[in-house]
Structures are given as C-alpha cells and as structure tokens.
C-alpha cells in the first residue's frame, strides 16, 4: 500500500496545537504539528508518555478539537466542528480500538458488533467482521467468557464492521501478552490490507514500528521525525 496516493490525503493538519489549562498550569500537549495521512496507510505513532500521541489521536478521531491550527478530513473542517458534527464523523468514518477493549459486558461478541452495525450506513454483517478477526467460533460468547486477546479482536471487529475509512488504535496490545498481542496486530494488519483502511496505531513499543508504512515520532508535542519503512514487516514476525 505504500507508494503513490492518488486520492490525496484523508487528514491534513497544519500547525495543530492543543493547550490544556489545569488550574494555573498550561500544558501544550500538541505544539504546532503538521501532518498528512493517506488512505490505506498503516501509521504507527511512537513516543514516550506525555509526548502528545494520545492527544493527536483524539483530535484525529473527533473526540477533541485543537486549540489552534487546522485539521481537515477529506477537506471537511474538524477544527470548528460542533458536538453533533463530531458525533456524525465518528459514527460514519472512524473505528476505535481501545487499550482495555471497552466491550459492553452484557452483550455477546456478535451483539457488541451489532450495536455498531445497526447505526452504520453501509456495514458488513457482524458475523463477517468477526470472521475477519478470526473469531467465527466465539460469536455468542460474553466478554467475561473470553480472553483479553479475544476481547480485543472483538473490539477490532466492532471498529471495522461499519467499514470506516479510519481505524484508530490506542495501545491495542498494551494489556496483552506477546503472543496474544501479535494475534491482535495480525488482525489489524489484515483489516488494513483487505479493506484499505487508514490505520493509526499508538504505541510506545518501538518494535511495532516495523509493521508500519510510516512511523511518526512524537516528543514534547512536536513531530520529531517521520520514518518511512521501505518494506512493512508482517506482524507475525515481530518479537518483543
């Protein structure tokens, strides 16, 4: 998927700045970030705690708006979007995967996915999404009956079932051991490859950078540098 991007960038950020004021302290979580993210790319955001990677992800996902600078998605201004626009944006365009899965405990795997497909415009069947992440045989299990890795894969199925253009993953393997973490990364990789979804993964695990098209390094709210991998490494071959 690397190489030319004929459709132009999905996200364009210029001078993105986010300042949190807490009491008398001002924290510049993002400090003048410029970036362009293209369809089908797999991006890894690397950085230490407090480097601003979560803030960037939140801005990309429409959970927060920058204090200054501009952010557009397909030319649509997200900087000045109101609550309703942001909800619609998240609903139609973005899939989220969280560190702690955030499944609804009272719903089975299939129902957790169905929760999203029922409000989406052009979803795949929940079963199809679960097959895609290799959970075709666990559809009727409740979260409490599944391992962490399985729960995370349900979360990925839930995120991609509506065929989003963007998949945002916040430390998706943070709570998992290596083996299950790899299985989850494989699922993400497969979604990115098969569906051509722009995928952004936050991590502070540098090993994961090797599976990306581009690696964006953040530090103190700024992009310190961007690496481009000539060849993506399959998730299966990663070791940490």
């Amino acid at each position: 998927m690397s190489g030319a991007f004929p459709n132009g960038p999905l996200f364009v950020g210029r001078g993105l700045t986010k300042v949190y004021v807490s009491g008398e302290v001002e924290v510049r979580a993002l400090d003048g970030v410029d970036l362009e993210l293209y369809p089908g790319e797999l991006i890894v955001l690397l950085g230490a705690s407090g480097s601003g990677k979560s803030t960037l992800l939140n801005n990309l996902g429409g959970l927060d708006v920058p204090t200054s600078g501009t952010l557009t998605y397909r030319g649509r201004d997200l900087t000045h979007a109101d609550e309703e626009d942001l909800t619609a944006f998240r609903r139609d365009a973005v899939g989220f995967v969280f560190q702690f899965y955030n499944l609804i405990p009272s719903l089975t795997a299939r129902e957790n996915v169905a929760l999203i497909t029922e409000i989406a415009r052009d979803p795949m069947a929940p079963e199809e999404a679960l097959e895609l992440v290799g959970l075709g045989d666990r559809m009727d299990h409740f979260p409490s009956q599944m391992s962490g890795g399985q729960q995370q894969r349900v979360a990925i199925a839930r995120a991609i079932a509506k065929r989003p253009e963007v998949l945002l993953c916040d430390e998706p393997t943070g709570a998992l051991d290596v083996k299950t973490g790899i299985a989850v990364l494989e699922a993400i990789e497969k979604v990115n490859r098969d569906l051509g979804t722009l995928t952004v993964i936050i991590t502070h695990n540098a090993v994961m950078a090797e599976m990306a098209d581009r690696v964006i390094h953040l530090s103190d709210g700024k992009i310190s540098h961007i690496d481009r991998n000539p060849q993506r490494r399959p998730a299966r071959s990663l070791q940490w």
Partner: peptide
C-alpha cells in the same frame, strides 16, 4: 458510565 461513554466514542448520539 464506561459502557455509555464507549458508545458515545464509537458514534452514538447523546440521545441514543
């Protein structure tokens, strides 16, 4: 609250 917030994040409206 966590479930409900998750629903908000993945695109449910306040009303939903």
């Amino acid at each position: 609250g966590r479930d409900l917030a998750t629903l908000r994040v993945v695109g449910f409206t306040n009303r939903e």
